[in-house]
């Protein structure tokens, strides 16, 4: 029985308005002719033109994308390994420590992660002479470290929910452990790995605090560029940039939702067919 409640639905409507009015207002004022970002002065798309001809913005966006692609990919590999280790290897030395190391970055405030990473790089430079200059490499390392644990959490929960008998069956049929991993386990958890990658990619693309601590001269990511502009106040070109980002993200989320739903459905259908075939 589902009863209707005017109270619940009005709070829901208020909540959605609360979430979307600021974003829509920002998008609306990106088409403002006036330099004053919050006073309407007529329709214009001039800020988009300025945005796409601003090489500073383009360079920062490209740098962010390069870092996000590399760090998300490595974070997914390392995070999946950690997820496999925690979900499939019941006993190994230091298991408790690993499971602690995987949860700790999730609750660690970004300021602390940022400062401690910076201190590590400074100390390493002092003792080992590396890294001489902070920049692309140090940002990427810091991003991998805090985004890989998100991948681990997703992959680990998928593995825990997965039917162990499929892997056991493959073992019984003579597959070696690495063959089971390659042919059975990884394909089954691939939607979880994909979600993990997407999350790691988004986190890296969005990060400003940890990046600001681990970057060096000449390496300005897009969030850092926005940060330095936002500190000076509201300007129409950031409204335009924000609109572009919101639209790209909305499309990306919609596409990945469709892909993941399809993968889910396909998996369910495969399981159904397998059950039907064995009857």
């Amino acid at each position: 029985m589902k009863q209707r409640s005017t109270f619940l639905f009005s709070v829901m409507a208020f909540g959605l308005a609360f979430l979307y009015v600021p974003i829509l207002s920002m998008m609306f004022f990106s088409f403002n002719r006036s330099r004053l970002a919050t006073v309407w002065g007529g329709f214009s798309t001039q800020w988009y033109g300025k945005l796409f001809s601003n090489s500073q913005v383009i360079d920062a966006a490209l740098l962010s994308l390069r870092i996000a692609l590399l760090s998300a990919t490595l974070a997914t590999i390392l995070g999946t390994m950690a997820g496999l280790a925690l979900a499939r290897f019941r006993r190994f030395r230091g298991r408790a420590l690993l499971s602690g190391l995987v949860t700790a970055p999730l609750i660690m405030p970004e300021v602390i992660t940022g400062i401690s990473s910076l201190l590590l790089f400074i100390m390493m430079a002092e003792w080992l002479g590396w890294p001489g200059q902070r920049g692309f490499t140090t940002i990427t390392i810091a991003h991998i470290t805090f985004s890989m644990t998100y991948v681990t959490v997703i992959v680990q929960s998928r593995l825990t929910a997965m039917d162990l008998s499929i892997e056991e069956a493959a073992m019984d049929l003579g597959s070696r452990p690495w063959q089971v991993l390659r042919d059975v386990t990884l394909p089954i958890i691939s939607p979880a790995i994909l979600s993990g990658w997407l999350l790691a990619f988004t986190i890296s693309l969005d990060d400003v605090v940890i990046t600001s601590f681990t970057t060096g001269p000449g390496y300005t990511t897009l969030p850092m560029l926005i940060w330095s502009k936002v500190k000076l106040g509201v300007t129409p070109d950031i409204n335009a940039l924000a609109t572009v980002i919101v639209v790209v993200v909305a499309i990306g989320v919609a596409i990945s939702a469709v892909i993941l739903t399809r993968a889910d459905k396909r998996r369910e259908r495969d399981i159904q067919m397998a059950i039907a075939a064995n009857k």
Partner: peptide, 21 residues
């Protein structure tokens, strides 16, 4: 999806949207 969508957009820009308001 509507509740989660803002989370996927830039955190910084969500703060910025309120600066505008």
């Amino acid at each position: 999806m509507l509740v989660v969508l803002p989370f996927w957009t830039s955190f910084l820009l969500r703060v910025y949207a309120w600066i505008g308001l």
